[in-house]
């Protein structure tokens, strides 16, 4: 039920304490939150948790299984897998944070322009969004890598370009429906320019759904980063990334199963955590998004 408050903000769903209680009483949502907190904590305290440097070689102890010295075993260069997994979490979360905030910001601006601006701009932006969405993501990523070369920045660039349309579309739809709301018409009648209307009245109303969408896009970003690193065209070695651990594990699958197990588990845990959390948040704050 949408209630138009005096400030021209459409209140959707519960806020504050009520939302927390609902999130924690939803078993999957609470589970997702726990997983996300776990992964974030591990990434933040990586320095304390890892007993070794993630790039420290120890050729004599290569391919050791899990033991007291190496909790998750060691890889083909004798590097400690647990330390690499822990530091890999930093890369994965860092890339997600940067990429999601960039594409969210650009998507917000473009979506509001498409929804509020002239018809031709709307049509052009929608056409470009559709074209970008019709690219096969991984092939597009590989094509960009051939041109820009493999690096962390290339990964971020790819994620940003391919996910802007996700935010842009939803923000546009919301802006279009807001356009004809009375409080916007009143504001315009009072002489507010398009910038004031967009910044003070449209933005506060479209940012909520866009943020929920962002939390659901994080698993996608983590998958792209890990996937590209797995293909050897993402994060450069020797920087630890879950994808590059999986790449090593694939290359040495007959020597040790532990690299694949240790590299895949954090990807699964993180994507599941963010997905469960994102779905719970969406159901609490904006069930209408479910249809999209």
């Amino acid at each position: 039920m949408a209630v138009i408050a005096a400030a021209g903000k459409i209140e959707i769903g519960p806020r504050g304490a009520g939302a927390w209680r609902r999130l924690l009483s939803d078993p999957l949502g609470a589970f997702g939150l726990a997983l996300v907190l776990l992964v974030v904590a591990i990434a933040i305290f990586a320095d304390l948790l890892a007993q070794y440097s993630p790039t420290q070689l120890d050729i004599r102890n290569r391919f050791s299984g899990p033991n007291a010295a190496h909790w998750l075993g060691s890889d083909h260069l004798g590097r400690d897998t647990f330390s690499r997994v822990v530091y890999g979490g930093r890369i994965a979360l860092w890339v997600s944070l940067i990429a999601v905030s960039l594409s969210l910001s650009i998507g917000l601006v473009l979506g509001m322009l498409a929804g509020y601006g002239p018809r031709w701009l709307d049509n052009t932006l929608m056409l470009v969004f559709d074209a970008v969405r019709s690219f096969p993501t991984i092939m597009f990523a590989l094509a960009v890598v051939t041109i820009l070369g493999p690096s962390l920045n290339t990964v971020i660039f790819i994620v940003v370009v391919t996910t802007i349309p996700v935010y842009g579309r939803i923000v546009r739809t919301q802006t279009l429906s807001l356009r004809t709301h009375e409080f916007i018409l009143a504001e315009r009648a009072l002489g507010a320019g398009p910038f004031r209307v967009l910044l003070h009245h449209v933005l506060p109303n479209v940012i909520g759904p866009a943020l929920i969408l962002a939390s659901m896009e994080i698993p996608v970003v983590i998958t792209i980063e890990a996937g590209l690193s797995f293909l050897g065209v993402g994060v450069r070695p020797p920087t630890p990334s879950w994808g590059s651990i999986l790449n090593d594990g694939y290359a040495f699958i007959n020597d040790t199963p532990w690299l694949i197990i240790a590299g895949g588990a954090p990807v699964v845990i993180t994507t599941l955590g963010f997905t469960f959390l994102g779905e719970a948040l969406r159901d609490i704050f904006d069930p209408r998004l479910r249809r999209e």
């Binding site: 999957l28 698993p219 998958t223 890990a226 996937g227 797995f230 999986l246 594990g249 694939y250 699958i253 007959n254 199963p257 694949i260 197990i261 895949g264 990807v267 699964v268 994507t271 599941l272 963010f274 997905t275 469960f276 779905e279």
Partner: peptide, 26 residues
């Protein structure tokens, strides 16, 4: 419901690597 969300969330290539490890290598 829970299995569906999980199946959607887990990246394809991780599924493939685990499938390769379990059903082909082991």
């Amino acid at each position: 419901g829970v299995l569906s969300v999980s199946a959607i969330a887990i990246p394809t290539f991780v599924v493939a690597l685990y499938a390769l490890l379990v059903f082909a290598v082991w």
